[in-house]
Design a protein around this nucleic acid. Structure first.
Length: 465
RNA sequence: GUCCCCAUCGUCUAGAGGCCUAGGACACCAGCCUUUCACGUUGGUAACACGGGUUCGAAUCCCGUUGGGGACGCCA
């Protein structure tokens, strides 16, 4: 049987980092076993689902490279089928009509809470004759759950977990308005979609037992379950916005690369010996459920950033140039084709020094922009003295007929420092300040080369006066 | 409250009874490299929650305690 997994978000908001990891694990598991990875949008409404959220989720998944192998299934379009199964259960005597109102149930729960009992449905209509129902009242359909024994789930991550039937009450599978409840819809959809492995957050572990009751009642084969631990914030509490970025799109905005985010997420809750840097292609070969841990993990932005810097260095220069130019334009930096070309030339050096695309853009700004850069305070101090200005003026003279190749520029600069009897740094730093407006930049010979003779001379003379 | 799950450095993890004086990675500290900044490199600080068992031997198995987390809707 070929493996089929699915990621089933509800479109009530953006895709967060925890959902992204669930999607990733589902996709990797399917790949690893040569199966398919599907997407089901759980928009069984409640007025909270929005088309905008669906759009965002799809965008986020696409960005992460986690688009499904088949078109997404929308749960809302399957209501008829959900009702059909509920009525089949009714016909089979595995479910019954329940006539109490939500208000009555609410009162029942409050009474239970007051008396310190678990809030469970008392089964009033389980054996009662529907003829006794109050007139004009629409019934909900409840599953007739087993009263004895226990339900056992052999979870692929959590191991064997069992719950006594006495802990579970008769859940509603079809509301009085004819719409399915979540627990029911999930089972019907997973069955119809041929899902073989349900990989999801372990907040669904307890739901699993009720879902199994539906599979069993219908005589359907249960899928394998794998409940993966949740991701918490750095402080151990539930991950929320106050911890920083949680939406996948926020990570994109902040300059993280999708492959770095995926690698980070992969290592959160899953390990394979000492391997840390695991590109997608390798992950698809080695990922499996037995490597998934059982305890919740915490979001560590520093480690994500570190991984990002690694992937940044490995990334294609053209791609990075495109990204950086886009971000610079967004920041309002003015540049033309020459500026863009300078950024492109410098990219191999720039990407070694940045941890995010945002940093990269910041470091590239001086090269992109037209004319002399804004000099920051540290850099200004380096070029403020008469000696520094004289040095720069002299350098400009020297460079006016230097050969314009990187290696040559470096040796000429070294020779120049030699002749002047100073260390290279004494020449490079003021030059760097004039050229980049900063005390930090890629190697000075690379900067000179990328800027080109004319632009370099202009910038030096603008400072030398 | 009831039920379920979890527990190795600050964080992510390796560890399937002897290979553990507990390994790697991030972060942090110090040194080296160096034209700045990064990168790289060398070294360092730092953990088996606690208490009982089982065993010749336990981070690894069992029980309990404590501490986290999750689920208990005509939400998903």
């Amino acid at each position: 049987m070929t493996v089929r997994t699915r990621f089933a978000p509800s479109p009530t908001g953006f895709l967060h980092i925890g959902g992204a990891r669930t999607a990733l694990f589902n996709a990797l598991f399917a790949r690893r076993h040569g199966g398919q990875y599907l997407l089901r949008i759980e928009d069984t409404d409640r007025a909270r689902s929005t088309a905008d959220a669906v759009r965002q989720i799809l965008d986020s998944l696409a960005w992460l490279g986690l688009s499904p192998d088949e078109p997404p299934v929308f749960q809302s379009g399957r209501a008829t089928r959900h009702a059909e199964v509920a009525h089949a259960l009714l016909a089979m005597g595995r479910a019954y009509l329940a006539f109490e109102t939500p208000e009555e149930l609410q009162a029942m729960r409050e009474r239970a809470a007051a008396e310190g009992r678990p809030p469970r449905y008392d089964g009033t209509w389980r054996d009662r004759d529907p003829a006794e129902a109050p007139p004009d009242r629409k019934p909900a359909i409840r599953l007739k759950a087993p009263r004895d024994g226990e339900t056992v789930v052999a979870d692929l991550v959590q191991g064997e977990v069992r719950v006594a039937s006495a802990e579970l009450d008769d859940m509603i599978i079809l509301r009085s308005d004819g719409t399915p409840t979540y627990l029911h819809a999930v089972v019907v959809d997973d069955h119809d979609m041929g899902i073989t492995h349900v990989i999801r957050g372990d907040d669904h572990l307890t739901n699993t037992f009720r879902q199994c009751q539906i599979y069993d009642a219908m005589g359907w084969h249960r899928p394998r379950f794998a409940h993966i631990p949740l991701i918490h914030g750095p402080d151990g509490a539930k991950l929320s916005k106050r911890h920083g970025a949680v939406s996948v799109l926020e990570f994109r905005e902040q300059g993280y690369l999708p492959e770095a985010v995926c690698n980070y997420l992969l290592r959160l809750g899953w390990g394979h010996g000492d391997e840390e840097v695991i590109p997608r292609e390798r992950a698809e070969r080695i990922f499996d459920l037995d490597g998934v841990g059982r305890s919740a993990s915490r979001m560590d932005y520093a480690k994500l950033t570190h991984l990002n810097s690694i992937y940044l260095r490995r990334a294609d220069d053209e791609r990075l140039t495109r990204e950086v130019l886009e971000r610079l334009a967004h920041r309002g930096v003015l540049f033309g084709t020459e500026g863009a070309e300078r950024v492109r030339l410098l990219m191999p050096e720039l990407k070694e020094r940045a941890k995010t695309l945002e940093e990269l853009a910041g470091a590239a700004a001086f090269a992109a922009q037209e004319g002399p850069p804004v000099i920051d305070s540290k850099a200004a101090a380096l070029v403020a003295t008469p000696e520094a200005k004289a040095l720069l003026a002299d350098l400009a003279q020297f460079l006016s007929d230097a050969p314009w190749e990187r290696a040559d520029l470096e040796s000429w600069l070294r020779d120049y420092a030699d002749v002047k009897g100073v260390k290279l740094g004494a020449v490079a730093q003021p030059l760097r300040a004039a050229l980049t407006g900063s005390t930090q930049s890629p190697p000075i010979d690379a900067v000179l080369f990328a800027l080109g003779r004319t632009e370099a001379m202009d910038r030096i003379l603008a400072v030398a006066g």
